[in-house]
Write a protein that binds this DNA or RNA. Structure first.
Length: 358
DNA sequence: TCTGGGGTCCTAGGACCC
DNA sequence: TCTGGGGTCCTAGGACCC
């Protein structure tokens, strides 16, 4: 009995931009940038997603929209329509779910499929991937890329290897070689900060990471050092899991212009709470902790939290707690850029203890 | 270049309990 | 005089992911 798995990772290509192209055929053949209003280069905010044509101009996700505007002034700039993307995502995930033994939705545009007992080998897995890709394209008019490998880590890195509309198959015996060549930044959990620390240690490729002794990594990164070392060898024992429980729920907003009037902050908090409280009621959620987040104009960010001795779902309680928690940050002669409210310590109603619905 | 909004997970210190 | 040890909960900050 072998315990080798066959995992597919499916990633929708430039998802938000693809949906916009689908809805607006006149966008085809043009750079499409989904994100904040660029306001002739003065806009505040970032790029959410852009299509591959926009990427040729150097535009990237998470880039300030003002920079995107400089790189690609003639692009088509659209505000995101998250409700639409959620609907299309839901439709696509519903199509996919029937194929694997287990399906895990990771985000709006990604999912893992454990097909170990559905296919007899990697050739069959590749055929299945082709079938799923065509079905999504025919029925939903968007493309996706698929990675196939012996675990979630390899499958995920493989789906990223050839995009858009690519399929990359990494058999178990090729996993080490495949992962060795990658930059450490590709590994999940290694972001800009960790990348910089690794660079100081002269570690830039996964191969160099694999050759580093675990002690050095653990001394530098704590328990994550072990995980980094495992990943560098292509090891990932985690299962494709269908269960998912929400841990927190909230909203935040960046003001059009930085503010110092407390009334404006309180009003914003009220609106944010009104918005997500609907979700709390609809999903039958109770909570016991309320947190606020304040970001000053210089991007310095603070959080404060208050935990009740009981679970509740009362809107006014959230507003009162949030206002109270904000007080120390107001009227001190500093301008505020962002305010946020979040509830956690959740007691989930039966409805919510199911699949993640993004 | 000047940094969104939705989240998750980790760490570290302090309070408190037995 | 010089002060345990383990567990749990809470808070604040930070890195990271999509």
């Amino acid at each position: 009995m072998s315990n080798d798995k066959i995992i597919l990772h499916l990633d929708l290509d430039a998802f938000f931009a693809s949906v916009e192209e689908r809805e607006h055929p006149k966008y085809k053949g043009k750079p499409v940038i989904v994100g904040a209003d660029p306001k002739n280069g003065q806009g505040r905010g970032v790029v959410a997603t852009c299509n591959y044509l926009a990427r040729e101009f150097g535009v990237r996700s998470a880039m300030p929209i003002s920079k995107a505007w400089k790189l690609c002034p003639r692009g088509i700039y659209v505000r995101p329509n998250f409700e639409l993307y959620a609907k299309v995502s839901h439709d696509i995930m519903s199509l996919i779910k029937k194929y694997p033994d287990k399906f895990e939705q990771v985000s709006v545009d990604e999912g893992f499929l454990d097909v170990t007992n559905k296919v007899k080998d990697y050739e069959e897995a590749e055929k299945l991937a082709g079938k799923i890709k065509k079905e999504i394209l025919n029925k939903e008019k968007v493309t996706c890329s698929v990675g196939i490998g012996p675990n979630k880590l390899i499958a995920k890195l493989a789906s990223d290897y050839k995009k858009p509309y690519g399929t990359t198959v990494i058999k178990p015996e090729d996993a080490r070689k495949f992962i060795s060549k990658l930059n450490v930044r590709k590994l999940p959990g290694i972001g800009p900060k960790t990348e910089a620390v690794l660079k100081e240690l002269k570690i830039e490729t996964v191969n160099q990471l694999a050759k580093t002794d675990v002690k050095t990594l653990v001394d530098t990164f704590g328990v994550f050092g072990y995980r980094m070392h495992e990943m560098s060898l292509g090891i990932d024992e985690s299962e494709v899991t269908e269960e998912y429980e929400t841990k927190s729920l909230g909203r935040e907003t960046t003001f059009e212009e930085d503010v110092d009037n407390p009334e404006i902050v309180f009003n914003a908090i009220g609106e944010l709470v009104d918005e997500f409280h609907e979700e709390i009621i609809a999903s039958d959620i109770q909570f016991k902790t309320v947190s606020i987040k304040i970001r000053y104009e210089n991007f310095e960010t603070h959080t404060r939290a208050k935990t009740f001795e009981f679970y509740t779902n009362e809107k006014q309680l959230v507003k009162d707690a949030a206002n109270q928690l904000c007080q120390p940050f107001l009227n001190i002669g500093r301008k505020i850029r962002l305010v946020g409210v979040r509830v956690s310590g959740l007691n989930l109603g039966e409805k919510q203890k199911t699949l993640k619905e993004v």
